[in-house]
Design a protein around this nucleic acid. Sequence first.
DNA 1: AAGTATTATTGAACGATGTTCAATATTATG
DNA 2: CATAATATTGAACATCGTTCAATAATACTT
Lengths: 187, 187
Amino acid sequence: MALAACRRILTEEGFRALTARRVAKEIGYTVGTLYLIFKNFDDMILAVNGETLDDLHDSLKQATGGHGNSTEARVRALCEAYLAFAVSQRARWTLIFEYELPAKAAIPDWYGKKIMRNFALVEHVLEPLMEDRPQKVREISRALWGGVHGICILALTGNLDVTGVNDVRPLLGILIDNFLCGLRSTR
Amino acid sequence: MALAACRRILTEEGFRALTARRVAKEIGYTVGTLYLIFKNFDDMILAVNGETLDDLHDSLKQATGGHGNSTEARVRALCEAYLAFAVSQRARWTLIFEYELPAKAAIPDWYGKKIMRNFALVEHVLEPLMEDRPQKVREISRALWGGVHGICILALTGNLDVTGVNDVRPLLGILIDNFLCGLRSTR
DNA sequence: AAGTATTATTGAACGATGTTCAATATTATG
DNA sequence: CATAATATTGAACATCGTTCAATAATACTT
């Protein structure tokens, strides 16, 4: 109930409207009740982000299906699905990376697992390209994901518009092309 | 005076300690005075970020000097300098990307110019590799910078530690290697 | 069915946040 | 010295996350 309310507020009013009292009103309770469900506000954010990570996982998984048996096409589809999710679920996606600073060491296990599941998708798609060096898959997948992630961030924070670039997809294409080239050449 | 205080607070106590009253006390004034200097809090953040962008530019510029005449070495140095700045100036660097959401269209010109100056450095370093297609430099530089930026973000937000990767520099190396490979092959 | 124990929910209060602005202190000017 | 201009204050406002004694609602026991 509370999480559904958070999702609604985020998508309809942005993440600056996500306050404890606002969520409480949305579900017809008082702010005090919210603190019986969640330990504190950060705890609620964490739960919201957990849901977002699950939805992201679903979107990414769906994107890796099909595309014939071309591995590179699947990589492209995965990256583009990540960008599409970031754009369409902007506020929820942003919240994941803009609200985890306070208690650094307090990232719970279940949350780490949700992050890992998404990385696992990237690894799985990249694996066919790296059968000869499976021990490198972990690093390579993180490097690729980090790169894609950075382009999404720059796009959504407006740091690209200001420099005269208004469509991110070509940038994403360039990054992926070059990355795949590197993978091919070092095989 | 106020900006120096902000810098001090950020580096010593983190960005959650950066409040209007805290800054006012640091410079020996009252909170009201601060609002005679800055239009509002976001305006102050913008000024702080402007200074950070200038410092970043200095760091990056210094990193591109030397390294013989190998262009690729300069690219590597530039990317690593960016990571080094993000790590050493963590709170200030983070503030740039975590605090510009409210008034989207209100990014002032002088701020956009400061962002552009940093992009120009990347473009300048990449130019020798792309003499045959100068019109592509803009996109390519944004793609590279976005990628590097993403890896820095993942590292600093702890989203990498949680997946069993604790040193980012190899990731950065992989990304750059692959990127340069792509640039070479399409020349 | 009545009384008791357990659980759910409230709403006022606290300190801290960004923000405003009439009132005051300070400095410069004639 | 008086007056105009500027600089600075600090109390007030609404809102934020957070807490907790008091109350309402439910379940259990005899």
